[in-house]
Design a protein around this nucleic acid. Structure first.
Lengths: 267, 267
DNA sequence: CGTCCAGTTGACACCAATCAATAGAGGTGG
DNA sequence: CCACCTCTATTGATTGGTGTCAACTGGACG
């Protein structure tokens, strides 16, 4: 797949249909996808019938290894994860940060109808994580049976693509301070997309090493940048806690516009 | 949309069904999508029935302007185009280069069922270009009627996402020489994906200014890098002609693996 | 023959990488 | 409870890659 994925269930609207709490865990895919747009009730059954296996991963454990066959898509139920590439020089580039609720590897089902597929990057848990695994061929066939499903996956793909593009802008044309500000603003926005008002502070288990690999910086330089942001009263990150001290200045600095993460986006 | 798009019809396999040449121009979408996988013949009719308007653009003319309503998806029939973002500082980051045959803005149809959509970046023709415009709402409804269509669009999205990810790796962890080498190798690969053997030389209408905005470099520095690549016998770009003088060295330098552009990719 | 624009080259400044080392926090075992 | 260890965070000194500013060149075009 392209290993990227967004938060399909978070579009700011409450779920149109309530599920008994006890059932939710058994229909993770439909739960994630239904709120993005209107999935006909009769199609949900097909989704909920998909065999899903619950599994736990430890921190730093690999969900997907580059170059291996692709067999499962994942729903990250709890914990954080990331997709990354390793370079011959030893460097690492993180491609995506996955938050609880994100879909991982859904796009890969596209080509699941034939050729031997190999992943072109790795995915690993950052914290201890719980995932629901969906068999790729099952998902692939469901894709043909349930017309709305593909539409939802396209929606998710569009959102993930927007995040990738925004990262490209950061890496290509923003300096270290701007990138850092933009990244922590994006995280804040993605974490609260459920409809909650934007929080001024949130928990974040990412070490500076991980963030540096996201932003294409050296850990030392990122550290200096974070200090500067702290001393100028913009942003403070300590012990897994992020404080957006001055959201307005941060957004101006990073040229941050949350529209790309929202439902009503296009293009 | 997310404004990114790949080359759906180029998977190395010949089209399973031959069309009379004269008809091709009237069914651009099905022509582009059918070869990626097997689209049932009975579904093609629905695609071919989509109203498509042919239109020509001049060089530097805008197909999509950031912040405006999104109304059409495009098939780039001839010419080159690019998607880009402009920053408050005046800088520009090119997000995608579109080659003849590429789809532009297809993903946007995902959310075309309701809210007023706005594009989050601009798309403009680099050379004079010919496009087929498809109305977004038409495409959106076709998406629901033709099960295979969404699948093909997902395939295209996965491929486009892979290109974006590869660019992120370049921008984040490769230096100017490596980025440049990687970019021209990728172009070569994308241009010859029709199944032709990889060409050692190809025509490319991109000015150094455009390439610099793709690679996140200043035009002056890119120029120096290109000179160095030329003097070391790796790559020569002159007057719209690219010569891969030493493909093997280039691929080693850029850590280039064309797998991400091919059909059989996953993840 | 002048204009314009892409390409080219040089000098210089600066942002960020690298190398090297220290300090803190959390965990573990004695 | 403390010593020890490891990983993360932090700081300094130095280097180097890339951006910026400023010209100049050369071809395309009218």
């Amino acid at each position: 797949m392209s290993g990227w994925s967004g938060q399909p269930s978070a579009d700011g609207r409450p779920e149109p249909v309530q599920h008994p709490d006890g059932l939710d865990l058994h229909r993770p895919l439909s739960r994630r996808l239904t709120s993005a747009a209107h999935l006909p009730v009769e199609h949900r059954a097909a989704l909920d019938a998909l065999p899903v296996r619950r599994r736990a991963y430890e921190a730093d454990e690999e969900l997907i290894q580059r170059g291996t066959a692709f067999t499962h898509a994942f729903i990250l139920e709890a914990g954080w994860a990331c997709a990354y590439r390793t370079l011959p020089s030893g460097g690492r580039q993180v491609l995506s940060i996955y938050l609880p609720g994100d879909l991982i590897g859904l796009l890969a089902v596209t080509s699941a109808d034939g050729s031997g597929l190999e992943t072109d990057h790795s995915v690993r848990a950052i914290t201890a994580a719980e995932v629901s695994e969906v068999d790729v061929s099952e998902l692939s066939s469901a894709l043909m049976r349930v017309p709305g499903l593909a539409r939802h996956m396209l929606w998710d793909a569009a959102r993930a693509g927007a995040i990738l593009e925004e990262r490209i802008v950061s890496l290509g044309r923003r300096n270290a301070r701007e990138r850092t500000a933009h990244f922590y603003l994006e995280l804040s926005e993605r974490l609260t997309l459920g409809g909650a008002p934007k929080a001024k502070a949130y928990d974040c288990p990412l070490s500076q090493y991980v963030v540096a690999d996201v932003l294409g910086l050296s850990p030392e330089h990122l550290n200096r940048v974070m200090r500067q942001l702290r001393l100028t009263g913009l942003l403070c990150v300590r012990r897994g806690r992020v404080d957006l001290l001055n959201t307005e200045s941060l957004e101006r600095l990073a040229d941050f516009d949350p529209a790309y993460l929202r439902t009503s986006r296009a293009a």
